[in-house]
Design a protein around this nucleic acid. Structure first.
Length: 304
DNA sequence: CTGAGTCTCCCTTTGGCGCG
DNA sequence: CGCGCCAAAGGGAGACTCAG
């Protein structure tokens, strides 16, 4: 088989395996047998000439090449998805300017890919972007200074007069270095995590959310560092100085200096991170902004 | 154009091996 | 022993070829 024989089936199976971390779970997710996944991945690796997964006794992890390929595979499937849905988007073909505000995590890890896709399907629309803290972002929405605001809506409820419409939910897991004692477990509890130094990200009110799930379990985290830098979290975790609890959306299995980070499920109830549109409860929105909001909901698979 | 034969791809089942 | 991946064998469905 040659490169041009790579099909969307290969990409779907690959992404399912990357997402679940197990061929058997991926098989369940896409309704085929585990062997079908194994074969498809093996064929894909053979065609690409690189190893995409490291095989372990209890699952698989992406190699550096595999992690890189995730972005491309996702891009290809997204582009196909957009092409198929293009007729639906054309109904909302608009021009003009949209002022979009987003919080730190959203602007860094969520929004860019959707903005790029939106620009492709709506070339007549001009985008104006603002990265704001939640309070500023909410003020901007209330004052009508922005047309659309996207933020992490799960950590702090939107203030009075505003509502959040969830677009995506992202599971929170434990991040550890590969040689960290907690990494050897297939899943861990907050009680176990509390024994180790914790790196707490503070952007987008993540600290508020963390405080709630720790208090709910009657536990106190062993805080080593509170930081607004995602790279600082990765570096500290990669060096084994501490562990962190963060969503899959911002996960990357290596640090800037090439150290490996792994993720483990948490057995306690840790609410997922939710990203959503923040808008006024009573609003009349510009057609372009409405088109963008509708695009986001369709692209994210949220209710349109 | 149509139907039979053949080929290819992808699937499932089954069994084996490694690891904790 | 349970769980997970891999390999082999065989079957189904669709694509392709070709004669009538």
């Amino acid at each position: 088989m040659a490169i041009q024989d790579i099909s969307t089936r290969h990409l779907r199976y690959f992404l399912a395996a990357a997402e679940t971390g197990q061929f058997s779970l991926a098989a369940h997710a896409v309704h085929v047998s585990q062997t079908a996944i194994t074969n498809a991945i093996a064929t894909l690796e053979s065609m690409l000439g690189v190893k995409l997964f490291d095989r372990h006794p209890h699952g698989v992890t992406l190699t550096a090449e595999g992690h890189h390929f995730v972005q491309h595979a996702q891009h290809v499937l997204n582009a196909l998805n957009d092409a198929v849905r293009a007729p639906a988007f054309r109904t909302y073909d608009v021009s003009g300017e949209i002022r979009i505000a987003a919080s730190y995590t959203v602007m860094g890890y969520f929004l860019p890919q959707y903005l790029a896709r939106f620009q492709r399907t709506h070339p007549g629309v001009r985008l104006k972007l603002l990265e704001l803290h939640r309070t500023e972002l909410e003020e901007a929405v209330k004052n009508g200074d922005v047309d659309v605001a996207i933020a992490v809506t799960s950590n702090v409820a939107p203030s009075k007069g505003l509502m959040g419409e969830t677009l995506v939910r992202s599971r929170r897991q434990l991040w550890t270095a590969s040689d960290h004692p907690l990494c050897s477990a297939s899943e861990v509890s907050l009680k176990e995590i509390a024994h180790y130094p914790l790196i707490q990200i503070m952007v987008d009110d993540a600290g508020e959310s963390a405080k709630r799930y720790w208090e709910k379990r009657g536990l106190e985290p062993n805080l080593l560092l509170e930081t607004e830098s995602m790279e600082a979290v990765r570096t500290f975790v990669g060096l084994g100085l501490g562990v962190a609890i963060l969503s899959d959306l911002v996960f990357r299995p290596w640090t800037l200096d090439g150290r490996k980070i792994e993720a483990r499920p948490i057995t306690d109830v840790v609410p997922p991170m939710e990203i959503g549109i923040v808008r006024k409860t009573s609003r009349l929105q510009a057609p372009a902004a409405e088109a963008f909001a509708r695009f986001l909901k369709l692209a994210c698979g949220a209710a349109a």
